[in-house]
Each structure stands twice: as structure tokens, then as C-alpha cells.
């Protein structure tokens, strides 16, 4: 269930980003890249889980 845990963390990260970033293109693009990368990492955790 690492996938769902990472999703949860990403939502918290995105929420934090909304409060922190102010009118800054670089930080905005950075936040978007973090979410994309984070979600890919989450998806790549799926094959590593044991099949029950």
C-alpha cells in the first residue's frame, strides 16, 4: 500500500506548496515536477509489492 501512502504525502506537499509559493514561476514549475515525479515513484512501487 506504499502507493496510497505516497499519494497522501503528495497531497500534503501540494497543499503546503499552495501556502508557500507566491507568484513565482520557478517554484510553481518545481511543485508540478515534484507531483509528477512523486506519482511516478508511487506507481513504480506497485510492482515491488508482494501479490497477496
Amino acid at each position: 500500500m506504499k502507493y496510497f501512502m505516497i499519494i497522501l504525502v503528495l497531497i500534503v506537499v501540494a497543499l503546503a506548496a499552495l501556502f508557500i509559493i507566491k507568484d513565482n514561476d520557478l517554484l510553481l514549475v518545481g511543485a508540478i515536477i515534484t507531483i509528477i515525479a512523486g506519482f511516478w515513484i508511487a506507481v513504480f512501487q506497485i510492482p515491488k509489492e508482494s501479490d497477496s
Binding site: I7, L15, I35, I36, F39, V43
Partner: peptide, 17 residues
Amino acid sequence: TIDVGLNAIVISTAGVL
């Protein structure tokens, strides 16, 4: 489905906010 998941993260974040 990757896009579906990414979108769900953003909408969930907006929802929590």
C-alpha cells in the same frame, strides 16, 4: 491512467484546502 492519478492528486488537494 497516469494522468488520471495526477489529476486526482490535484483535485484532492484542492478539496482538502
